[in-house]
């Protein structure tokens, strides 16, 4: 795999006047952003045909740093805004860059419905198990026992598996990696971007400042080491009994299918409606 230099990617795709970013040392968002930009670059997409949409949180600041059209919206609502953009102008390609709190908590309902509709968007999900921007509160993804500022004695709730939620809700493509899975990550994003319908690539992404510090992993390398311990590739997980998978996070591609997307279905509906009501197709 030939890789362009990071500087080349940076110079082409980032808005210099918006830098520096707000991201902390050791944060994984930059890596995931790089995977996404490399995927776009390899696909040769024009910067004028892609809209980046986000909600609220650290990762939601990304549309501000990239030189594309961007809509930085309200907390959890990115997919609802994206629905309007994509349905009003299906020629636009829509990327939703989001965090786990945004997608799985406040935006949980918008998420499952966007997936159910099979809206043609790609969600790049930064899962750092925490609310980083607001200072390290626990999220719906925080594994039981882990700590946050709102769970000083450890989380006592069951976490969401966002990737599996997307699979069950009907997404066309779902994959999960850690930021350490550089090659798979870029490939997955590329695949997701090309596919019609709802696609999700989730990345376990280190947040040493807000999450790691409270869980005895003060640096990104410590968090990545931890990811290596808790993640199991899907090929291996398939042959493992459920007890052994307890507390583990499966990574890999979970689904890859081609159900018709929402815009395709709507085009069909328009034809049907016009036929039913005696409106000729293409008539002025």
């Amino acid at each position: 795999m030939y890789l362009k230099s990071s500087y080349e990617i940076r110079d082409k795709y980032l808005r210099k006047d918006m830098l520096p970013t707000i991201f902390c040392p050791g944060c994984g968002i930059g890596s995931v952003l790089q995977f996404t930009l490399r995927a776009i670059d390899e696909l040769g997409w024009s910067q004028d045909e892609v809209v980046w949409v986000s909600g609220i949180g650290c990762s939601s600041r990304v549309p501000g740093y990239v030189d594309f059209d961007g809509l930085h919206t309200t907390h959890g609502r990115a997919l609802a805004f994206a629905t309007g953009i994509k349905m009003a102008n299906p020629d636009l390609k829509v990327i939703v860059f989001a965090g786990d709190g945004d997608i799985a908590a406040i935006g949980g309902n918008h998420f499952i419905h966007a997936v159910r509709r099979n809206l043609d968007v790609t969600v790049i999900l930064i899962n750092n198990f925490t609310y980083g921007m607001t200072g390290g509160q626990v999220a719906p993804t925080t594994l039981k026992g882990l700590r946050g500022t709102t769970a000083p004695y450890g989380s006592f709730e069951n976490p969401f598996d966002i990737a599996q939620l997307a699979v069950a809700s009907g997404a066309n493509y779902v994959a999960r990696w850690t930021v350490f899975n550089y090659v798979q990550g870029i490939k997955s994003v590329k695949k997701a971007l090309q596919k019609k319908g709802f696609t999700l690539v989730e990345f376990l992404s280190p947040c040493p400042i807000s999450f790691g510090r409270r869980n005895r992993m003060k640096t990104a390398p410590e968090l990545i080491k931890w990811y290596q311990q808790i993640t199991i590739p899907i090929s291996k997980a398939k042959n493992m009994p459920p007890e052994e998978l307890e507390g583990k996070i499966v990574i890999g591609e979970f689904v890859d299918r081609d159900r018709p997307s929402l815009e395709e279905e709507y085009e069909r509906l328009k034809k049907r409606a016009k036929q039913m009501m005696g409106f000729e197709e293409g008539e002025e």
Binding site: V53, L71, T73, T74, R77, A80, F81, A82, T83, G84, I85, K86, M87, A88, N89, L92, N109, H110, H113
Partner: peptide, 18 residues
């Protein structure tokens, strides 16, 4: 949409496409 929060969000998104 799934609720009114999403409804107004969607029309704002649509409006930004002109």
């Amino acid at each position: 949409m799934e609720d009114e929060i999403a409804s107004i969000a969607a029309i704002i998104g649509a409006s930004w496409t002109g």
